[in-house]
Design a protein around this nucleic acid. Structure first.
Length: 275
DNA sequence: CTATGGACCTGAATGC
DNA sequence: TGCATTCAGGTCCATA
């Protein structure tokens, strides 16, 4: 479900409320993508220091160790403030609860592609493996147009698929890849290494713009996205091509096309987006 | 190293 | 109405 903007919006919606809290209980439901990596009781009594984000992972820093939380395709977090057990009985798809002195964080994830993984420290096994291959953060200063061009120059796969792979730049998922390529005027099928410096610079700017705008507007609401307070975002009203197959391009009136790339749907305007 | 297809899992929408 | 098929915001892994 969530791409970078949705994860970031989720993070902001509970980070302050949970910071400083003590872990009182941990409940695990059906198995998620990977095992927690530690016995849940070991986490009791630890303090939540902060909540950060890396790509589409949330990093919950504890007084000792950290928890990585990924929302997969269908995950969402809900935070219910208050030290009492204001938490409703877990539903069929509620697979993780972190009960703290300041409120309870609950992961709801029907498809269970999400994950909660414990790392004893920043260097530990699975956690390191999950994070180490990630590309640059698109909204930070380290995302540089020239460096982006140099990395793309080594890739012959279609640009859309290189964006989705997340090893060059993180956070661009299926919706925002189509949207950013539309903004940049680039056909999703173009081999990454055949894009000129100028076009890569345009794509660089488009990615930042699309993601920043989506964060500012509270994330996308295609399907059921909501932040940890249950508030939905407004990005769906902004999609230029995603989900618009057969409809007229807002920019030129041509018919928006959909194709399959690597088992994912891609949307583009055949007139606005050049090879 | 890169590129590609399958795998994981459930639910909603679509087709016959 | 029922049943089968397709699709959904991710990403790891095996294979070529």
């Amino acid at each position: 479900m969530p791409e970078l903007p949705e994860v970031e919006v989720t993070r902001r919606s509970f980070a302050d409320a949970i910071s400083g809290a003590r872990i009182l209980a941990v409940r695990l439901g059906a198995p998620l993508r990977w095992p927690l990596g530690v016995e849940a009781p070991a986490l009791l009594g630890r303090q939540v220091l902060a909540v950060r984000r890396r790509g589409k992972y949330l990093l919950i820093d504890l007084s000792e160790g950290l928890l990585l939380v990924h929302l997969g395709m269908s995950g969402s977090l809900a935070f219910v403030a208050g030290s009492q057990s204001g938490l409703a009985a877990p539903g069929r798809h509620d697979h993780f609860d972190l009960v703290t002195s300041q409120g309870s964080l609950r992961l709801h994830d029907p498809r269970r592609f999400g994950a909660v993984v414990y790392a004893a420290d920043q260097q530990q096994g699975m956690a390191l493996k999950l994070l180490s291959g990630l590309g640059v953060e698109p909204l930070e200063d380290g995302f540089d147009a020239l460096h982006f061009f140099q990395l793309l120059a080594r890739r012959s796969a279609p640009i859309k698929q290189v964006l989705l792979a997340g090893d060059v730049v993180v956070g661009v998922g299926n919706i925002y890849a189509s949207e950013a390529l539309f903004l940049a005027g680039i056909r999703p099928t173009v081999a990454a290494n055949r894009l000129s410096r100028v076009r890569v610079a345009r794509l660089h700017a488009a990615i930042r713009e699309v993601l920043a705008r989506a964060v500012a507007q509270g994330g996308s609401t295609l399907r059921n996205f909501s932040n940890a307070h249950g508030e939905s975002g407004h990005f769906q009203t902004q999609a230029m091509v995603y989900g618009r197959a057969g409809a007229a391009c807002y920019q030129c009136g041509a018919t928006v096309t959909t194709i399959r790339q690597g088992q994912r749907s891609t949307f583009y305007c055949p007139r606005c987006q050049k090879l």
